[in-house]
Nucleic acid binder design. Structure first.
Length: 279
DNA sequence: ATCCAGGATCTCC
DNA sequence: GGAGATCATGGA
């Protein structure tokens, strides 16, 4: 019944989905993953290097989503050279790929991520989807489209458990519906211009903007800096000494260059799983 | 039970 | 322009 979705190296379904870049997936008992992106849904499994899919799905969309065509071998070799720490992080999860996710979903998801735990972020997104998304065949809900959130108040988001982030969600939805954030327009902007545009939304600072740049717009040179990256970086490269955000950004850009985003995700997952720099 | 989370903002100076 | 308090909530 299953068909081959992709057959190739450097692709672990579990590592790619569970490394913290994606919140809209569900793992079933039989090791199958159901992923939702916008209105789309796919069920995938893995056997060796083969990624399999079950039922119907928009395969071209999902191939772009999973970045299947990119040569990660080249990226990993370049990043591993002369960097034992990063080499170990890559060995720990060699099958991570950077997903290309929906803009609006990334915007709201990473607004919700601030000062929040990953399991709780996923719960909030599930509640948001159940309340305002579209029911999908065989269970689950789509991520709400901007129009589906039209007029939803800050207070309603708070009642869903979003806390102080409710105000930010309402501002983001309002600005998107006003038309200033069409992905086809945004992708033409330079990385710095796009970052500044995103940060004009209340509740979007540099870290949230950088996650959107990396996980939705494929700006692989950005290096999102969160608490874990701070810990890992200072532990791995600075003998435990903490760097200021500006220092860290400059160092990471110098050290990882145009592959900073990939390096960040390997280091983030490794650091968080190993609890590096934390008691 | 207390701590803390893929931070951002506001308020000081 | 940098340091510090504040923000809601619930998983661990």
């Amino acid at each position: 019944m299953e068909k081959v979705f992709w057959d190739g190296p450097d692709f672990s379904l579990s590592q790619t989905l569970e490394c913290g870049q994606c919140f809209c997936y569900r793992k079933k008992e039989d090791n199958l993953y159901t992923v939702i992106s916008g209105q789309r849904k796919i069920t995938l499994g893995q056997a060796g290097d083969s990624i399999l899919f079950y039922g119907d799905a928009d395969i071209p969309y999902w191939k772009e989503y999973f970045d299947v065509e990119r040569d990660y071998q080249k990226i990993k070799q370049k990043l591993s050279g002369g960097d034992p720490v990063l080499a170990e992080a890559i060995t720990f999860a060699p099958g991570i790929r950077i997903l290309k996710q929906d803009f609006f979903e990334m915007l709201l998801s990473f607004i919700l991520s601030q000062n929040n735990h990953i399991p709780r972020i996923r719960g909030l997104i599930q509640r948001l989807s159940a309340a305002y998304g579209t029911p999908l065949a065989e269970g689950g809900y789509s991520f709400p489209a901007p129009t589906q959130l039209f007029g939803v108040s800050e207070d309603t988001y708070r009642q869903l458990g979003c806390g102080f982030r409710g105000r930010y969600l309402a501002d983001a939805v309002e600005k998107v519906l006003a038309g200033g954030f069409m992905p086809e327009d945004l992708e033409k902007l330079s990385t710095e211009d796009l970052r500044q545009r995103l940060m004009s939304i209340c509740g979007v600072g540099q870290k949230v903007a950088d996650c959107i740049l990396l996980f939705s717009f494929g700006r692989y040179e950005v290096f999102p800096m969160d608490v874990w990256i701070n810990r890992v970086y200072s532990h791995a490269y600075c003998d435990g000494k903490k760097l200021s955000p500006k220092e860290l950004q400059a160092e990471a850009a110098k050290r990882f260059g145009t592959y900073a985003g990939f390096a960040q995700q390997y280091l983030f997952y490794y650091g968080r799983e190993k609890k590096i720099g934390k008691g």
